[in-house]
Nucleic acid binder design. Structure first.
Length: 746
RNA sequence: GGAUCGUUAGCUCAGUGGUAGAGCACUUCGUUCACAUCGAAGGGGUCGUAGGUUCAAAUCCUACACGAUCCACCA
């Protein structure tokens, strides 16, 4: 045995040994199952992934408790995220997604992901994860597609799905609508213009949307404007005179601005809601490309910001601006990827009605059929579930699962808008009818198709069918180009990871571990899908682990430059030290500061563990039968009553430690459990008992030696879930190279 | 605006009615004898503020201050 524990030399070998002996796979016993939260397929390890250690701790602990532990890994295609990364990659080659048909683009991204995947698994192995890698599931695997499409079909049939125009946050640069998760808010100072509007003055930061105004609103209790309510007023605007109705709505804040608001349903979420309440016309003036359209007259074709400047300039010239407040601070919704302002836009979207679907979810959480650790997250998820509104599931990107909806072309030629690349490589944009008339076949259009957009025609909607396969008379149908929101597929994770017969034995799974950030987006949806499809909860417990932050408690981000690469730390100090530093002295659901000094401290602990074993091992030889004077000395030690008492005391102290340990482990108090063993092994077992019994052990006191060995090995087992490598290495020293700590039990 | 969490040693954080703790940092001493990636000893905190409950409060309650996060709003 080396006097220093050197993880670099043995970790890889140990892991290989587990693989060769098939110890990553479940053994017989009562089932215990965890589904690994799927990281992005093309991701590489970041500090946050380190917290997966918590699941490894559970898996290994249960294995040692005699359970049939199974940890199923997987990767996520991460739609928007991955396409974004790929597009940046394209940009370097001075290309964009508009240079490709959706089919080409999809295949390219697929290849890109394939080329970059697998890395994270090798890094997970480096961390020692005891997952059954052979069972890895990718969210675009055939059987996953099958399940996801079936779920959608079922939902559509049972009327949980609808298509509607909806106001979404739309990034005109990335060309897609964004989920709540993908939006950020930034505080910003923008001029607030007080515009003369007929008899009123009203405040707005977005004068360029005034061409889409379809009403003015005041608060019902606002006495100042009582005489105008319900009347149509005449307004002199930039495009001449027009009439507009004055309505009342509670949403108007009398104290803000002048208390009069313009309602622009097509370009503001609140106005959209108000428009619905009052049955107002929805007048779109900004197109999806971020430019004003023909309703804006001379401003048509201008981008939003440019149009705003021109409109303000022209309003000023016509003396239609009363005054401007230049110190107005408000928060603006921006794209979390490109940082540009998001445009509230009317986009046809597929929705899931959540009202009925979320009911059983709320019930399951309230009745604690699913428990949360730490407990406070129960409140959080309930709050979110209650506020949850209909879920837009379509995304205008290609990297994902294409929505299995087919629109009828025949009779709708003028209603179906699309873009495609023709056989000569020319980019085309317009209605399908326009190109069919010009001699294109539907096949050619489909081949080079990029995107189709079908507005809602309320009087005569475009007919569609839901079908996993292309309808037989394919000539007449064209498939939706939108893909599902990533959460739509990852939300079905528990429905696609187990084998059919395992749903009888391993479902619901035991624990779902994840970061509290995605509790609403992911966890609640997994519960929802599972209850809908399987009529059963997907997991019994939810464990929310900590967010890994830097040593000052700051979130790690590239822009701050405080990103710590876990791989470097593992190479330097060993996987055990890294793992222990994420668990030792931390609490779940909070922050874990990751600092090199802490990892170093834990590395020292690993070395201590190693050297305790080394001391005991080195003295094993001495306990052989002794002769002559030695034997006399030996005998004398054997009968020493003080030492006998010490041994008994040690045994007693250990029993108490183990009891506490088991209690902590069973209640997910991993930090406590590790701290307990740390304190016992180092400061009681080594600093006190070994020092006290040292001479006796060296002299060959069998009772003392035997007790030290037994208790040491027991502590290795207890530590094994946290620090698998050093404990396995120590175990092999005592039990033989071919033995594994994983085959023992408590 | 609503909610949740936090505020404890120089730093990062455990501790949840009964003698204030850990890691790192700091001071002093000790190297052949398992480990200097070590050991021994020590300094350092009126546990955010103000009230209350209690024989007893860092811990329970109330209010406030500050910070973090989530949700909503933001014309």
């Amino acid at each position: 045995m080396d006097s220093k524990y050197q993880p670099q030399q043995i970790e890889e070998k140990i892991y290989k040994g587990w693989e060769e002996k098939e110890l990553l796979e479940p053994k017989t016993g009562k089932p215990f199952t965890i589904l690994m939260p799927p990281p992005n397929a093309n991701a590489s390890l970041h500090a946050g992934h380190g917290m997966y250690t918590v699941e490894d701790i559970m898996i290994r602990y249960k294995r040692l408790m005699g359970f049939s532990s199974l940890w199923i890994p997987g990767t996520d295609h991460a739609g928007f995220e991955t396409q974004f990364v790929y597009e940046k990659h394209l940009a370097k080659q001075r290309k964009s997604r508009f240079d490709f048909s959706r089919k080409e683009l999809y295949n390219n991204v697929y290849q890109f992901v394939k080329d970059n995947s697998g890395l994270i698994y090798s890094q997970f192995k480096k961390l020692g994860f005891l997952a059954d890698w052979k069972r890895s599931v990718f969210t675009l695997d055939d059987h996953v597609l099958k399940t996801v499409l079936e779920t959608f079909t079922k939902m559509e049939k049972e009327e949980h799905v609808y298509k509607d125009e909806y106001i979404v946050n739309y990034c005109t640069h990335d060309g897609t609508s964004l989920s709540e998760l993908e939006t950020l808010y930034v505080e910003r100072k923008d001029p607030l213009y007080y515009i003369k509007y007929g008899p009123f003055v009203l405040a707005t930061v977005r004068p360029e949307t005034k061409f889409g105004d379809t009403a003015l609103a005041v608060h019902p209790k606002d006495k100042r404007y009582k005489k105008w309510i319900g009347r149509k007023i005449e307004v002199e605007g930039l495009l001449g005179k027009f009439k507009i109705k004055v309505i009342t709505d509670e949403m108007v804040d009398m104290k803000f601005g002048t208390g009069v608001v313009k309602i622009t349903p097509a370009h503001d979420p609140n106005d959209f809601e108000a428009g619905k309440r009052h049955g107002l016309e929805v007048k779109r003036v900004i197109n999806l490309d971020g430019r004003l359209n023909e309703l804006a007259g001379p401003y048509a074709g201008m981008k939003v910001k440019q149009a705003r400047e021109r409109v303000v300039k022209d309003l000023n010239e016509k003396k239609l601006i009363d005054h401007t407040d230049d110190n107005y601070v408000h928060s603006v919704t921006v794209c979390y990827k490109c940082g540009r302002d998001l445009e509230p836009m009317i986009v046809p979207n597929w929705f899931i009605k959540v009202k009925d679907l979320k009911k059983p979810v709320i019930e399951a959480v309230e009745k604690e059929k699913i428990k949360f650790f730490p407990k406070r997250f129960k409140k959080q998820i309930l709050q979110w579930l209650k506020a949850m509104h209909d879920w837009p599931i379509s995304r205008q990107i290609v990297w994902g699962i294409r929505i299995p909806v087919w629109y009828q072309v025949n009779g709708n030629e003028k209603k179906i808008w699309l873009s495609f690349i023709d056989s000569k490589g020319q980019f085309k944009k317009g209605t399908v009818g326009q190109y069919l008339e010009n001699g294109y076949t539907l096949d050619e259009i489909k081949k080079g198709l990029q995107q189709i957009t079908i507005p809602i025609y309320k009087d005569k909607p475009v007919k569609y069918i839901v079908s996993k396969e292309e309808p037989i008379n394919g000539q007449d149908w064209i498939q939706e180009t939108d893909t599902f929101d990533t959460w739509f597929s990852s939300g079905q994770w528990p429905l696609v990871t187990l084998k059919d017969d395992e749903y009888k034995t391993r479902f619901p799974t035991d624990v779902m571990g994840t970061l509290s950030d995605i509790l609403p987006f992911w966890v609640s949806r997994m519960i929802m899908f599972s209850l809908y499809v399987k009529k059963e909860i997907p997991f019994k417990d939810v464990y929310l682990w900590s967010k890994v932050v830097d040593s000052k408690g700051q979130k790690m981000s590239k822009s701050k430059g405080n990103v710590i690469n876990p791989v470097d730390l593992v190479n330097k100090y060993g996987a055990d030290a890294f793992r222990a530093s994420l668990i030792f002295g931390t609490s779940p659901g909070g922050n874990v500061p990751l600092a090199e000094e802490k990892v170093l401290g834990m590395r020292n602990f690993m070395n201590k563990i190693w050297n305790i074993g080394r001391f005991i091992w080195m003295n094993k030889k001495v306990t052989r039968p002794l002769q002559g004077k030695q034997a006399q000395g030996h005998k004398r030690v054997m009968v020493s009553s003080t030492n006998h008492d010490k041994v008994q005391q040690l045994q007693k102290e250990f029993n108490a430690e183990k009891k506490k340990y088991l209690k902590a482990m069973d209640s997910y108090h991993f930090s406590q459990a590790l701290g307990l063993v740390y304190e016992f092994l180092w400061h009681r077992f080594a600093d006190y008992y070994i020092e006290q019994l040292k001479q006796d052990v060296i002299n060959g006191n069998i009772e003392a030696w035997k007790t030290l060995e037994e208790i040491y090995l027991e502590n290795l087992k207890m530590l094994h879930p946290f620090i698998p490598f050093v404990t396995e290495a120590g175990w092999k020293v005592f039990k033989g190279e071919n033995n594994s700590i994983l085959t023992t039990s408590f």
